[in-house]
């Protein structure tokens, strides 16, 4: 499905040539001029706000009036608040369960990696959920779970299982939302692995086959190592997707029932926008940022290492 002319691959093949050294005037300035517009906007809308949020998290601010310095007050309150721990716990559940996406995506990719008629369409249809807005996905699943008319309960009834109002049950609600979130995420991982499978080295596979490597062993020792770039991207993207989760929580439950399905991203939105507690909201955002920073740092070091 992906031929050798696709831009990424071509770019990669040629990647390792070193950039040329500039000899003429304006030696130092030229790249900065090219970068200026992007850098300017990026600083204004991304870099400055990050710093600004950090500072704001040390203040109390209701969106109007004066900001009042409270030092670590917001953080003290945060760590003492039940909601925060519920949100954090839910974020961790999101992250753990989202880790199912890469292996399931791989399984589907392996299943679909054949050359039969119409397989291109099949692959496209499998990938389809990723293209749809999370709001639409939220709607679809809200309805799927509806206690009166949802398909889920119709299925449960067929099997004689007690029906359940998934989205208003504090025990199951988070899992219900995560299932909805996994759907497009699996599709994404699948496509990453399909691309990876396409660029496997045929020599290695043939050699392994001659050595009578088979099935899972083959997968474990020959295929997976070659797929490691795809796995890396899949894991990074999945972790980030899990931490950023907002759209589905907002559309499916608005954090409910009684806040039991909230996540850090939604909690900060609710505190800032509905409760007018901008400083406190910023503190939630900072905690989320710090958790994510671990992954960003991991990704960056790995990427920078491969560059040098």
């Amino acid at each position: 499905m992906q031929d050798q002319n696709t831009p990424t691959l071509r770019a990669n093949q040629l990647r390792d040539k070193p950039p040329i050294t500039r000899r003429r005037f304006p030696k130092q300035l030229t790249p900065w001029l090219f970068m200026a517009p992007a850098l300017l906007l990026f600083s204004l809308y991304v870099l400055y706000p990050i710093i600004s949020s950090f500072i704001l998290s040390f203040y109390n601010w209701d969106g109007m009036g004066d900001k009042v310095w409270v030092g670590f007050g917001n953080y003290v309150e945060l760590f003492d608040s039940e909601t925060f721990w519920i949100a954090l716990k839910n974020n961790i559940i999101w992250m753990l369960l989202f880790m199912l996406a890469p292996p399931i995506g791989l399984a589907i990719a392996l299943f679909l990696n054949q050359e039969v008629r119409g397989i291109r369409l099949v692959k496209a249809l499998f990938f389809f959920p990723f293209v749809i807005s999370q709001v639409v996905i939220g709607l679809v699943f809200t309805w799927f779970y509806d206690p009166n008319l949802g398909l889920l309960n119709s299925i449960l009834e067929v099997f004689g299982i007690q029906t359940i109002a998934l989205l208003s049950s504090e025990e199951y609600v988070t899992y219900g939302i995560i299932a909805a979130g996994l759907w497009p995420q699996i599709a994404y991982c699948m496509i990453l692995y399909l691309t990876g499978l396409n660029s496997l080295s045929p020599d290695q596979i043939e050699a392994a086959r001659l050595d009578r490597a088979k099935g899972l062993k083959m997968l474990r020792y020959i295929i997976l190592p070659q797929l490691s770039p795809a796995t890396f991207i899949a894991v990074v993207v999945t972790v980030i997707g899990a931490l950023r989760s907002f759209d589905l929580v907002a559309t499916m439950t608005a954090g409910g029932p009684w806040g039991s399905s909230t996540v850090l991203a939604y909690m900060m939105y609710e505190e800032s926008i509905f409760n007018y507690r901008m400083g406190y909201g910023a503190a939630v955002a900072v905690v989320l940022f710090l958790i994510m920073a671990v992954y960003i740092a991991y990704f960056l070091t790995r990427m920078l290492r491969s560059e040098s």
Binding site: V46, I240, R244
Partner: peptide, 22 residues
Amino acid sequence: IWMLAIFIGGNFVPFQILMIPV
């Protein structure tokens, strides 16, 4: 390389942290 790192890092930021200032 640092500029590149900044662009990539910024892309992965949980964008909620940008909300109030933006």
